[in-house]
């Protein structure tokens, strides 16, 4: 068989966008895990309401601070895409600034979430509603930590010159995962803070 295969021209072995494709699959899986937790929240809330039980005590969940987090994350979508664009244009300085800003926005999200969790005065073992509040936001924090780590790693690699116009795959991958995490927050914000 080996002799016959050489009768045709050899094909190139290529590996285009492997990191980006892998990150897309990973982001999809992460999104589904988060969605799984959110759906348990929604399901439990529906059960509680149909039984006439209180889900959250009145006045404990405020829209303001959570809205600030959402605004911060929307800003960060622009900064991560700025980083991708800058790397594609071989503009390392802009890319580094954009990545650093994205990381900073991420850090501020942790700070704001910490405030919200303390402000509600909830306890994990108190009620199903309070329990699910922590589980959903805790899961989001875990994915956010990975996103900030990914951005930090991309920053270091950009800093030492591993990326360029023909090698922007990893930056695009980091941006894709970041945007997925922002989408996760959008869902959590709507489900927990808007519809409560």
């Amino acid at each position: 068989m080996t002799t016959t295969t050489t009768a045709l021209p050899s094909a190139e072995i290529t590996r285009p966008r492997t990191v980006l494709v892998g990150t897309m699959f990973g982001s999809g899986a992460a999104f589904m895990a988060f969605l799984g937790v959110v759906l348990v929240y929604v399901s439990e809330r529906a059960s509680a309401r149909s039984a006439g039980a209180e889900w959250f005590p009145d006045g404990t969940i405020e829209l303001g601070p959570s809205g600030f987090i959402f605004s911060t994350l929307i800003l960060s979508i622009f900064t991560v895409q700025w980083a991708v664009q800058a790397i594609n244009n071989n503009d390392r300085t802009n890319a580094l600034v954009a990545l650093a800003l994205s990381g900073l926005f991420g850090a501020s999200v942790f700070n704001q979430l910490w405030f919200i969790m303390n402000d509600t005065g909830f306890s994990l073992a108190e009620t199903n509603g309070q329990f699910m509040f922590f589980v959903v936001l805790g899961t989001f924090v875990a994915f956010m930590i990975v996103a900030v780590g990914f951005i930090a790693l991309t920053f270091v690699r950009a800093f030492i010159g591993q990326f360029g116009p023909r090698k922007a795959d990893s930056v695009a991958a980091a941006a894709f995962y970041w945007n997925t995490v922002v989408a996760m927050y959008a869902i959590a914000w709507y489900v927990i803070f808007v519809t409560k």
Binding site: F25, M32, N128
Partner: peptide, 22 residues
């Protein structure tokens, strides 16, 4: 990859509940 993460979510809820939940 679409479905096993949901199982992971089930396990997470049960695990947290086991330690500190209601």
């Amino acid at each position: 990859m679409l479905t096993l993460p949901v199982l992971l979510a089930n396990l997470l809820v049960a695990y947290v509940d086991l330690h500190n939940g209601p």
